[in-house]
């Protein structure tokens, strides 16, 4: 009985170590001329969507450090003006990895983006002015132009595959049936 207890405890300890140990992935992010890139970001997204996403921002020497569990991750490395890099990794022990990013030709250009919509928990607000051409005759035509929105034959609306239950136009409730 005593022996059983010991094995049980041992087993439990081993098991808990397995699930809780963290391995570190570290190294530098540089350009093709070996110049360190500071403020590059690394995002380690676990394949298991219930696990936490880990991240690191490189310091002024281009160094990064990620503490990862022993589960598969997809790591994405971003730095503006450079092509993003992606790789899969599953760590069983600490590992060092240096990452080299390639410069994009158009990196010097000024970029201006106008944001046409706002996300709010379960509501997406579209600023329609930025998306329509003025040739739309029905609201249905406008809806079809919004990113992710689909209108079926019966007037049912989906956004990214999810059914829309309520729609507000200029903050007033709008009946979905009125579309046809």
């Amino acid at each position: 009985m005593h022996r059983f207890h010991q094995t049980f405890i041992l087993f439990f300890l081993l098991f808990s170590f397995q699930s809780y140990t963290q391995q570190s992935l570290s190294g530098t992010v540089t350009d093709s001329l070996d110049k360190p890139l500071s403020s590059a970001n690394l995002l380690a997204v676990p394949k298991d969507s219930l696990q936490e996403v880990k991240f690191s921002i490189t310091d002024n020497k281009g160094r990064y450090h990620l503490n990862l569990k022993s589960i598969p991750y997809t790591v994405t490395v971003n730095y503006m003006g450079y092509t993003k890099k992606e790789f899969d990794i599953k760590l069983d022990e600490d590992q060092s990895k240096n990452i080299i990013l390639q410069e994009q030709a158009e990196s010097l250009e000024e970029v201006v983006l106008e944001m046409p919509m706002v996300v709010k928990k379960d509501t997406i607000i579209y600023n329609v002015n930025k998306l329509v051409t003025g040739e739309e005759r029905k609201l249905k035509d406008v809806l079809k132009k919004l990113p992710g929105v689909e209108v079926d034959k019966n007037g049912g609306i989906t956004v990214n595959g999810k059914k829309v239950t309520t729609m507000l136009v200029e903050n007033e409730k709008f009946l979905v049936e009125a579309l046809n």
Partner: peptide
């Protein structure tokens, strides 16, 4: 909310 992004 970000309304305009101007880089470089």
């Amino acid at each position: 909310t970000a309304t305009k992004i101007n880089l470089n």
